[in-house]
Simulated scan of single mutants.
Amino acid sequence: MIYKKLIKPILFKKDAEQAHEWALKLASLTNSSPFLQELSSLVYKNTNLDLEQELFGLTFPNPIGLAAGFDKNGTTPRAMQALGFGFVEVGSITAKPSAGNPKPRAFRIPKDHSLINRMGLNNEGADRIIERLSNLDLDIPLGVNIAKTNDASIQGDNALQDYLYSYEKAQQVADYITVNISCPNTGEGKTFEDPQALHDLLETLDPAREGRKPTLIKFTVDIEKPALEKLISICEDFDVSGYIATNTSSDRTGLNTPNPILNSIGNGGLSGRAIQKRSTQVVHWIREIAGKGKPIIGVGGIDGPEAALEKLEAGADLLQLYTGLVYKGPGLVRSINKKLTRSNLNG
């Protein structure tokens, strides 16, 4: 209620990226303050203690995680734990630092309870971020999302080695690693969702090697089932630990936001309620293709208990939020967890 009546109106007077930076500063301050963490826990911490699961060797106290994109540089994990998240994923991080795409590059479309962004993988680079994360002492799993550096000149084997650098660095701090093969917001606009490109990438990363951290693959929402079947077959050959569905969308079909506004915004990845049904469909397809034993993290349009249950019923074991927090605030985590029961979980 405080967020809806007081904080949200202030944030929505700023542009989307300015509001994000304000929220990130507040979360980063909480991250470094035991007092603010305790205060946040008192207000927001989940009281449902029957939601614990063990997946790919990790214990998740509840199924609600922070999606990659909010905390690209790893400055807020303790704060997210205090807010009641059951796990947190930072990044995407890349081997080299990147300022990302030119501003403006993040936009709200309130009529659809969604966002469009073309941030361009802005982050401080793997070395600095991994060093920052090295002193964390979390009680929840930490995921690190990796992607290729946003530099069109990095191609071929150099692109594979770029990924490998971040992957090797993340091994030092991550409880699991997400390989982001589907980010459209890069200079060359290419992804690793081409079957041969994915094969070459996984061959380079070698996720099944002894001592590797659990490795998950994140897919776009704009994928069709036949293509998904080919990619999952490749992933299974390399014994990946699980899947995340989904990343953002380039499709603008069926939005309530008028076309002139969408045209003025331009390119970018669509997230939020507008991709809810489509992302749930991809979760369902992955469950059909990969079978019951493979963990799936569902993300896309989860902005309340009903949307969370939809993902779980489709086959997700865990869930992630980001855009929903923009519209509903940090109390969303607790409100979802309060409505879940042990029987809702697949793990």
Results as ranks from 00 to 15, higher is better:
K5M: 13
L6G: 14
L11H: 06
L11K: 07
F12T: 11
K14W: 12
E17G: 04
A23T: 15
L24K: 05
K25G: 12
K25H: 15
S28E: 05
S28G: 13
S28C: 13
E38Y: 15
S41D: 04
N46F: 11
T47G: 09
N48H: 07
N48Y: 06
P61G: 05
P61W: 01
N62D: 00
A67E: 03
F70P: 02
F70H: 09
K72T: 11
G74N: 11
T75E: 15
Q81F: 01
L83D: 13
A99N: 11
N101V: 03
I109W: 03
P110I: 04
H113Q: 08
N117E: 00
N117S: 00
R118L: 00
G120Y: 02
L121S: 01
G125W: 00
A126R: 02
E131D: 12
L133G: 02
L133T: 01
D139P: 10
D139G: 13
L142R: 09
G143N: 07
N145Q: 10
I146K: 00
A147W: 02
N150E: 03
D151V: 08
D151S: 08
G156P: 05
Y165W: 02
E168S: 03
K169Q: 10
A170Q: 02
S182R: 04
N185G: 08
G189L: 02
E203R: 14
E203H: 12
D206F: 04
E210Y: 03
I217Q: 09
K218S: 02
K218G: 05
K218F: 11
T220G: 10
I223W: 06
K225F: 02
L228E: 02
E229H: 03
K230C: 00
L231K: 03
V240L: 07
V240P: 08
A245M: 11
T246S: 09
T248E: 01
G254N: 10
L255H: 12
T257R: 10
P260H: 13
L262K: 13
L262C: 04
N263E: 15
N267T: 14
G268E: 05
R273T: 10
A274V: 07
I275W: 03
Q276F: 12
Q281N: 07
V282I: 06
H284A: 07
I286Y: 00
E288Q: 11
E288W: 05
G291K: 06
K292H: 14
G293E: 15
I296P: 08
I296E: 04
G298F: 03
G301Y: 08
G304S: 12
G304F: 09
E310T: 14
K311P: 14
K311E: 15
L318A: 13
Y322K: 06
P330Q: 10
L332H: 05
R334S: 14
K339C: 15
L340Q: 12
S343V: 14
S343P: 09
N344R: 13
N346K: 15
N346Q: 15
